[in-house]
């Protein structure tokens, strides 16, 4: 029996999905396009950003939108030294859990900083908008240290 040859090949599993958003996600994305950040009030009054469609505790359908601030506090973070191809940054950056002013529950997003030493838990950050907004989670290009948003 001859030795098997090893057959390997790169391939890409890819599709551009067409997602319908429903009213809650759609409202959040519409507001992002308009450079506004909204959350939603949970059954116990907690404000979730981005808005959840259903309450995580009671499973109730949620509908009471609340505009929240564009600045907030870093609840936790990590520093990505070697960004992956898929990451929204080619240079080292942070992921962060950010509790926006007026929100009770932090959200995950990008935190852009020039070095790990500039990021800390509890730091104040502000959303920096993409040049063009279109109604997508990346309309927020990322958060930056408060005062650095321009």
């Amino acid at each position: 029996m001859s030795q098997p040859e090893l057959l390997s090949q790169d391939f890409e599993l890819g599709f551009t999905y067409t997602r319908s958003t429903g009213p809650v996600v759609g409202r959040f994305l519409t507001d992002l396009r308009d450079r506004i950040i909204v959350g939603i009030k949970g059954s116990d009054g907690k404000v979730y950003v981005p808005p959840m469609e259903y309450d995580p505790v009671t499973a109730e359908e949620l509908s009471e939108f609340v505009e929240v601030g564009q600045s907030g506090e870093v609840v936790s973070w990590c520093w990505v030294k070697e960004p992956r191809d898929s990451h929204p940054s080619a240079v080292p950056f942070a992921w962060a859990l950010i509790k926006l002013d007026g929100a009770d529950v932090p959200m995950v997003h990008v935190l852009r900083a020039s070095a790990e030493s500039e990021v800390s838990t509890g730091m104040r950050v502000t959303a920096r908008w993409a040049e063009e907004t279109r109604g997508f989670i990346t309309d927020i290009d990322g958060f930056v240290a408060a005062g650095d948003e321009s």
Binding site: S20, T21, E53, A59, E61
Partner: peptide
Amino acid sequence: TRRGDVSIAGLLREAAVKALEDAGLGF
């Protein structure tokens, strides 16, 4: 063909809530 008015979660939710209502029950 296309339920363009709901998210993926919203689609399941609709059937789930109807089933619960049909059963006279809640989550």
